[in-house]
Design a binder for these strands. Sequence first.
DNA 1: CTTGACCTTACCATGATGGGAACCTCTATC
DNA 2: GATAGAGGTTCCCATCATGGTAAGGTCAAG
Lengths: 144, 144
Amino acid sequence: MNIGQASKASGVTTKMIRYYDEIGLVRPASRTDSNYREYDARQINELRFIKRARSLGFSMDEITQLLSLWRDRERPSREVKAIADRHVADLDARIAEMQAMADTLRHLSHCCAGDDRPECPILADLTAGAEPTTPPERVKARAR
Amino acid sequence: MNIGQASKASGVTTKMIRYYDEIGLVRPASRTDSNYREYDARQINELRFIKRARSLGFSMDEITQLLSLWRDRERPSREVKAIADRHVADLDARIAEMQAMADTLRHLSHCCAGDDRPECPILADLTAGAEPTTPPERVKARAR
DNA sequence: CTTGACCTTACCATGATGGGAACCTCTATC
DNA sequence: GATAGAGGTTCCCATCATGGTAAGGTCAAG
């Protein structure tokens, strides 16, 4: 199987397969006499594994760890779970952050007439770098 | 005011101030005879505006648009609102995506014993449709 | 043998940010 | 006035995962 076929079989672009090869995420593919990479079913599985892990938001670094656990039939599931839980916590933190942004903006937008007039609470908020407008729902303590 | 003072006054690093200058997000700062950038209160406000907008997750590109509306006293608030709403939709989409990842992982982690044994639903999911890397013989091919 | 599809490497770009080198300028102190 | 050191200037590199492109080698079919 050459790289194009591996790409079709795994759903990973040839570009990315070469990249994973280059950074050592997967072990270097064997080569034909003409220097073409060759892949077998085992490596296709690894590529699919990587693809699925990426779709769950794991970083390359986390995937490196997951792959090594995956390859080790003696691994303690504890270690896998720890990586997953850390990632979930990370996702939750980022979600909370974005949620706060969205909530603030929703509030500002709600207060904005959105017509031809120039008055705009959204710009007012951005301008006031000092004084936050009342965030959605409850009023939070204004420090500063 | 030189760049260091502008940085302290705006909360934007000197590195970023120079970058905004370079990409034309802010108009090029005037220079002293010795080529130092100089800033006035107006520009400090712009930097603060940018900082606040960044903290709400707007991209440089969106901020470019917001800044130009901000500078235009005739702007229709409609346009500002449109940018904000688009950004909120974008945030919501990304939140939903990450939420789905987190939910899936939470479920898998919940099903994982997390002990010394190697059985792991998380890895099983990642394997998804692929067979575990079959080290020759020894392993009963578990389908799915 | 030619053609076209596919492979190889190598470099560039992204977005927003930080790090650092090499060099210039200001200011305070001796 | 000389000097130290703080802070300015430009320029380059790196991130992270991905895509694009160009120059050149290889393979299979007609």
